Amino acid sequence: MAAGNHTTLTTPRFDTPVKVLIVISPYYSDIAEGLLKGAKAELEAAGAEWDVVEMPGALEIPTAIGISDRKSNFDGYVALGCVIRGETTHYETVCNDSSRALQLMGLQGICIGNGILTVENHEQAAVRADPEGQNKGGGAAAAALHLIALSRKWGDIRKDIGFKPRSDDYLMAGDNDGPKTA
């Protein structure tokens, strides 16, 4: 376990309802139960509505979130699962690819709390998944809520895309007749 203190932010409050999809892999069912219990408690404490969908493994979680984001109306997502190191490099592939996919979607503006545990053994996972312990499921739900709050805070701000000409005059490529006026 990491040494030292860490800061936990106050859970945001919302004026309008929040709808979150929890996408979970129950591959290690006892670990998944703890993660899910912690996430649900955090969402309920914030007054958020939630739904749950199960996927076979951690690699399918980002795809499920991507599909849901395109075809539904959730404000955010909580990704929950567990990857335990084994004897092959499959561990690195699953950890890296699921994390990278979630991060890329987050950079596109999708509000995702990542609670996919990546651990060396079952004991480490149990400590992290325990709602009365490290409560990583609750932490992932809190992260999603903070991102939703930030998205709503800045949701009405619109920025121009591209560039604006310095004036209404513009030049066309290959046009030697001088500037045109829009």
Score class of each variant (00 low, 15 high):
Gly57Thr: 01
Thr8Ile: 15
Val83Gln: 05
Gly34Lys: 08
Glu60Trp: 05
Ala140Glu: 04
Ala140Leu: 03
Asp156Arg: 04
Val23Asp: 00
Ser29Tyr: 12
Ala173Phe: 11
Arg158Gln: 14
Gly178Val: 03
Ala41Ile: 05
Pro12Thr: 05
Ile31Phe: 10
Val127Glu: 15
Ile24Asn: 14
Asp177Ala: 13
Asp177Ile: 00
Arg85Thr: 07
Glu87Ala: 06
Thr63Gln: 15
Asp177Pro: 07
Val78Ala: 08
Val23Glu: 07
Lys159Ala: 14
Gly174Trp: 00
Leu171Trp: 05
Asp75Glu: 10
Val52Leu: 04
Thr93Ile: 15
Ser98Ala: 14
Ala32Val: 06
Asp15Met: 02
Gln124Lys: 10
Asp75Cys: 09
Leu147Asn: 12
Asp156Leu: 11
Leu21Phe: 12
Asn73Pro: 00
Met1Cys: 02
Pro179Gln: 05
Lys159His: 08
Met55Asn: 05
Leu171Asn: 12
Asn176Met: 04
Asn5Glu: 15
Lys180Asp: 06
Leu21Asn: 05
Lys164Thr: 13
Ala149Leu: 08
Tyr77Cys: 06
Pro26Asn: 10
Arg152Tyr: 02
Ile31Gln: 04
Ile67Asn: 11
Val52Asn: 05
Ala64Asp: 06
Ala32Pro: 07
Ile67Leu: 15
Val20Glu: 01
Asp75Thr: 02
Ile161Thr: 07
Gly162Glu: 11
Val83Asn: 08
Ala173Trp: 11
Gly38Gln: 05
Gly174Thr: 02
Asp175Ile: 10
Trp50Pro: 03
Ile157Ser: 10
Leu150Phe: 13
Thr10Arg: 09
Leu80Asp: 07
Glu42Arg: 14
Ser25Arg: 11
His90Ile: 06
Cys95Gln: 07
Ala48Asn: 09
Asp69Arg: 14
Gly4Val: 03
Ile84Val: 01
Asp177His: 06
Ala129Asp: 02
Ile22Pro: 02
Ala41Phe: 02
Ala143Asp: 04
Phe14Arg: 08
Leu102Glu: 06
Cys95Pro: 09
Ala79Arg: 12
Ile24Val: 14
Arg158Cys: 03
Val119Met: 01
Val83Cys: 01
Ala125Gln: 09
Arg100Val: 11
Glu33His: 01
Thr11Met: 00
Asn176Gln: 13
Ile112Gly: 10
Pro179Glu: 14
Thr16Tyr: 12
